[in-house]
């Protein structure tokens, strides 16, 4: 099976966010970009499928600027992906899921793909539109919020679940398809040291993205005012604590049902 896994470098979780000088975006200066969150899970999912289905290959792709895109692709290779393609594009292109899908789709046309995997959303802008847009551009079905992805070799189809507001749906889909994974129902592996060394020497195919002015323009990036910390409820008995809390929720926060 030919599996393509789409990843996006995002600031590591501990990053202290701050706006750029012009206040429009999150400042990338000094920020460490990593393979994280949903993307770690989708790489893991790709590798699990590769291990389960004989003669499978996993190809990692990323859209965005250097060096962060190359770094996450090397991280994916260190985890066990077989090859990688970097679509060289601006951060603004990468940040808009639709623009990223448009930049990537032509590159995928030249890559065999039975399954295109992505995370439900990137950990920075959390748009979650990339996979569906890519499905449309490739002319194949896409599914978001997927868990329990399995391959049925006899029927040559995937089975999976989707957790939606209407209940947990069970699906069957032939290939090719685009799947965006809901969450880590797997336990992402850690790259081993020899693989890290090997990944540094792995070739990464570079493709230039067609310049595309995104229709979604960043105007302002703001941090919420720091929370002042919780109002701590003093009490002598648990009952008193409960009464005080319910009163505050009713009268002060006005969120009591």
């Amino acid at each position: 099976m030919e599996i393509v896994v789409c990843i996006k470098p995002v600031p590591e979780a501990e990053t202290r966010l701050r706006p750029t000088a012009d206040g429009t975006r999150a400042d990338p200066d000094g920020v460490k970009f990593v393979l994280a969150g949903y993307d770690e899970s989708s790489v893991e999912q790709a590798l699990l499928l590769k291990e389960a289905v004989p003669a499978s290959k996993v190809h990692a792709v990323a859209v965005g600027p250097a060096p962060r895109s190359e770094e996450v692709l090397r991280a994916a290779i260190a985890l066990g992906c077989d090859s990688a393609t970097w679509v060289d594009a601006t951060a603004d292109t990468a940040d808009d899921g639709l623009s990223a899908a448009r930049a990537l789709a032509p590159a995928l046309a030249g890559l065999p793909h039975d399954l295109v995997l992505a995370g439900k959303q990137a950990g920075d802008r959390e748009s979650g539109v990339f996979a569906a847009a890519l499905g449309e551009l490739l002319g194949v079905p896409d599914f978001g919020f997927v868990t329990d992805l399995r391959w049925e070799p006899a029927a040559a189809r995937f089975t999976f679940r989707r957790a939606t507001e209407g209940g947990v749906e069970r699906w069957e889909s032939p290939v090719p398809c685009v799947i965006a994974l809901q969450q880590a129902w797997n336990d992402p592996r850690t790259a081993k040291l020899p693989m890290i060394l090997k990944s540094r020497k792995a070739p990464i195919a570079k493709v230039a993205a067609a310049p595309a002015a995104g229709p979604s323009i960043p105007v302002k990036f703001e941090l919420p005012p720091p929370r002042s910390g919780a109002k701590m409820i003093e009490y002598k008995t648990p009952e008193e604590a409960a009464q005080t809390l319910v009163r505050l929720l009713k009268e002060e926060a006005k969120v009591f049902p």
């Binding site: 639709l98 448009r102 539109v129 996979a131 569906a132 847009a133 449309e136 939606t164």
Partner: peptide, 23 residues
């Protein structure tokens, strides 16, 4: 803002050549 809405939004935007924002 549901799974249904999210999945459809990306499709529609790509197909309709529209800008998209979620959440």
């Amino acid at each position: 803002g549901t799974a249904f809405g999210r999945d459809l939004a990306g499709r529609l935007a790509a197909r309709w050549n529209a800008a998209v924002a979620t959440g």
